[in-house]
Design a protein around this nucleic acid. Structure first.
Lengths: 345, 345
DNA sequence: GTGCGGACTTGAAACGTTTTTATCCTGCCG
DNA sequence: CGGCAGGATAAAAACGTTTCAAGTCCGCAC
């Protein structure tokens, strides 16, 4: 004890303007010396605020030991960086699916287990979003549903990516283009289909529904899909792939068929891990660092918890093209190779 | 309120034997109805226990956007599964390195921010372990230091893996064998070197120090290493690789040299993600599901926090061999292909 | 010299539990 | 019939904060 009362110490530690600057210094340095810090749970009890940010983490990070390459750790790391230095701590709630996520959200809200929530894997009609909007509880979605208004979110412009990728393949001369997509219940799956269709339509190509493969985006899915698709009577020569894990499987499948993405067959992927450069052959991708999504999400959540309305807490990233494939497309664009590419040796 | 006092309700909710069975039922069902659950922070304030398990998560999950394929999310998921149903919650502390991890541990202990800690990336002399042992605070290490006694840990028998892998390459006729290893400050890096050396020694082969490459285990590191190693005047034909990300880079590097692991050159990797089956060509690996490590770790931490001494809370996994490479080694062992292999289509 | 405002500081209540101690009740034994 | 054991419940203190209302002290104006 410095001689000051508990109340003054509390005020000093919270940088209240009512306490004299000199006193504040005295108390602060004393606290430093004995490495005192307020017990966050006692504070929480008094204030009602928990100081916690809840992450809804899906448990099937790897579906039956099959890698699906979702960068959950990168997101967590990004969010953590954003809340570094604030009084918030990151708390993990593991859930199996969106429905269980909605239950977890309800528990978090009613029992006040956290001050804010975030989650990914947004469905077209997402029960978590519906619930949290009704409960008027601060949250940020990593991804967006079909009507993405009224709530804070961070997302990748998947529709744009799918359209650009499809266009690029069309420009390369491909007429039969396959889409390796996540399961249709995910909102971004629909976005991707829309983008893909738009590109086909504007080129006057038929909308080939049989060329859309939907699955869990594991490498296994990628391989199975390409084996099936290449078995069709008019097989696709272009592939737009939703992530790198599936792309790896796709390449393995092509390989086992004696094929390779050499121009006659082309692959364009969405790139989450920046690892496509090491595939054989390297694959052209649209790249977006996941950690940056996480950082943005964290910053938004802080502002949302501070009371800011969600209207402006929206950011949709457009990944950057990394042309890597040795095909006629890449050759045409060799001079606008972005920085990421150069950094890699 | 059911008419019973606060004290009785508390006792009933905590399943205390002093309260009558009938009363307990009454209170429990009432709690169910209004979905009441005790405020964990108030409880924590009273009891001194926090109900939190701290995870020290390294921030450089991807080193400069380069994938290093460490399954942090899988570990977290495994631990979460283990503490499911207990009153414990998982809390994330992001740190840059082991030194910062030690600071975080100190904060957690002195300010009682959690009841237990776990962390990975164990160094040969790990400051976190030293500190937590001195502070007598419950923790479980994912990995083990050079003198792995007196504390709970879960690990992979890296020395054994390195020895087996090296032996296998020697049996395949390789004389110059390279080791792609993590940075030497990590304890398991030393283990791997020891195993590698043991295998060389028992075969009467020289200990070629120039064939050990050390780095961050990204794909970039794998590529650079193989390019350098194959540039030596007596280049290695066998490669023992520490993870899948580096293996991917290694294959890309071999490929760019016009080489392939076809028997004349062989690669054996440690497999963390079960994705090597999709490399071209598929690579023989030692596989250990990371999530299982996490589950075991979580279970150990619970027991440790319950007061169990650390002596028996030790488990060292031996990964299982998955022969996949089309080389003389694989051909010899084709009939003992383990289950993981068969499941993959 | 009294009163008053302003700048700081402090007392005390409250947050929702757990736990120790006390009280109440019932039935049984002496 | 009184006392007492023992089972069931209740009262109350304590955990460490925050915050509001109340207090102290000082100088200055009247």
């Amino acid at each position: 004890m410095t001689g000051f009362s508990i109340a003054t110490v509390s005020n000093a530690m919270n940088d209240s303007p009512v306490v004299a600057a000199r006193t504040k210094d005295l108390i602060r340095s004393a606290a430093e010396r004995i490495s005192y810090a307020a017990n966050p749970r006692a504070a929480s009890l008094r204030t009602g605020r928990t100081g916690l940010v809840a992450a809804l983490l899906p448990v099937d990070v790897s579906a039956g030991n099959e890698w699906n390459g979702v960068g959950h750790a990168e997101v967590l790391s990004g969010v953590s960086q954003a809340i570094q230095g604030t009084p918030y701590q990151l708390s993990i709630f593991v859930v199996r699916d969106a429905a269980e996520g909605r239950m977890a959200a309800e528990r978090i809200v009613t029992q006040r287990l956290a001050d804010g929530i975030f989650f990914s894997g947004i469905l077209t009609e997402d029960p978590r979003i519906d619930y949290l909007l009704r409960a008027d509880f601060p949250f940020v979605a990593l991804g967006r549903g079909l009507r993405p208004s009224g709530y804070a979110h961070v997302d990748i412009d998947s529709g744009w990516v799918a359209r650009e990728a499809t266009r690029r393949l069309i420009a390369g001369g491909h007429r039969r283009i396959a889409l390796l997509n996540p399961e249709p219940r995910f909102a971004y799956a629909q976005e991707r289909i829309a983008g893909y269709r738009a590109a086909l339509a504007e080129a006057g190509l038929p909308l080939a529904g049989d060329l859309i493969a939907e699955g869990d985006l594991t490498a296994r899915f990628g391989r199975q899909s390409v084996l099936h698709l290449r078995g069709l009577e008019d097989p696709p020569t272009g592939f737009v792939c939703a992530n790198e894990a599936a792309t790896l499987g796709l390449l393995a499948g092509l390989n086992s068929l004696g094929l390779s993405p050499d121009g006659a067959v082309s692959v364009i992927a969405y790139d989450d891990l920046n690892v496509s450069a090491y595939f054989s052959p390297p694959v052209t991708t649209y790249f977006q660092p996941v950690e940056e999504l996480g950082r943005t999400l964290g910053a938004f959540l802080l502002r949302r918890m501070a009371g800011e309305p969600p209207e402006h807490l929206i950011k949709v990233f457009r990944p950057s093209l990394i042309p890597r494939q040795p095909d006629r497309l890449a050759r045409r664009e060799m001079d606008d190779v972005p920085i990421q590419q150069r950094r890699q040796t």
